[in-house]
């Protein structure tokens, strides 16, 4: 299993304190992380890392954000043929998301392709989810 400290995670959230908090959690757990405010900045970072030949192993993104929301971000990611796994974080419950964003995203198939965490979550469950995602990939 690859060392944690080689893993790099990108965090997207529009709330300042949430970004800092998540970075703390990930650092405590031994991961490297970068924090950005929105999807636009996220893409800039992805390109930047690519040019430096550094892999981003995972993206942690909030769903409800101004500019582009979490789902739109994932869609764009797919358009770039990116294989980076994404974990969605949401302050809303799963079923509320349907109502908020319309049935387009409600298809269980779509959702199941991405891990989904409801806020508030404990840091343990978050790390657990992250570990699972990363291991899942390395097993492939």
């Amino acid at each position: 299993m690859a060392m944690k400290k080689d893993k790099h995670i990108l965090i997207i959230d529009d709330e300042y304190f949430i970004r800092i908090a998540y970075q703390m959690i990930l650092t405590d757990a031994g991961y490297n992380s970068t924090i950005v405010e929105d999807g636009e900045e996220a893409f800039e970072k992805i390109l930047e890392f690519e040019s430096k030949n550094i892999d981003i192993d995972l993206i942690l993104t909030d769903i409800n954000m101004p500019k582009i929301n979490g789902f739109e971000f994932i869609k764009k990611l797919k358009e770039f043929n990116s294989k980076i796994p994404v974990i969605l974080m949401s302050s809303y419950r799963y079923d509320e998301i349907e109502v908020l964003l319309g049935s387009k995203f409600s298809s269980k198939n779509n959702i199941n392709n991405y891990a989904f965490i409801e806020k508030p979550s404990t840091s343990e469950s978050l790390i657990c989810c992250i570990d699972k995602q990363l291991n899942h990939l390395s097993l492939n």
Partner: peptide, 13 residues
């Protein structure tokens, strides 16, 4: 706050 890391980030600011 139930999320301790959030508390730490408030504390820093």
């Amino acid at each position: 706050d139930d999320e301790i890391h959030l508390l730490y980030s408030y504390d820093l600011s």
